[in-house]
Amino acid sequence: MSLSKKKEIAFGIIIVILGAFYLFMTYQIESKPGVVDARTVPKILGFLMVLLGGIQIFETLKLKSKEEESKSIDTGTVVKTSSLILVYIAVFNKIGFLLSTIIFLFLQFSILAPNDMKGRKYFVINGIIAILVSLLVYMSFRYGLKIMLPQGIVTFI
């Protein structure tokens, strides 16, 4: 269950940078007289993060190198999935919940489908599930729970 040394050190560096950035930002906060003001707690947190990052790097350097776990990761699918999520949220409000969700679900099913679940049959099934789920969610929220989801360009339902 151990990560490679490089990754552990990279993590330590990320914490230090994050902490330093946060600490820098705390000095932009308006200061008021008193022992403790709005800056105090964030400052402590920033210092803690930098300190933890330092310990993380130091500790990893001291330890003997560990073997990296060999687990194949499908980076292409991860990138595709993340990009699809970003695009979905970006257009969600503009083209509306219904249309964007149908497209999102259909594409996401296809991206994630295992190799033995591809082909025309699954193509159709995925399409039907995407449409049904989107309609069901939209209708139940709009008419059942009276929560308005963005209509976008599909204004007739």
Binding site: I73, D74, V78, T81, S82, P114, N115, D116
Partner: peptide, 17 residues
Amino acid sequence: AVSEVIKIAETSRLEGK
């Protein structure tokens, strides 16, 4: 929840039924 969706992308294509 969202992190889990991204995580599943790592392996979902490689596993079968």
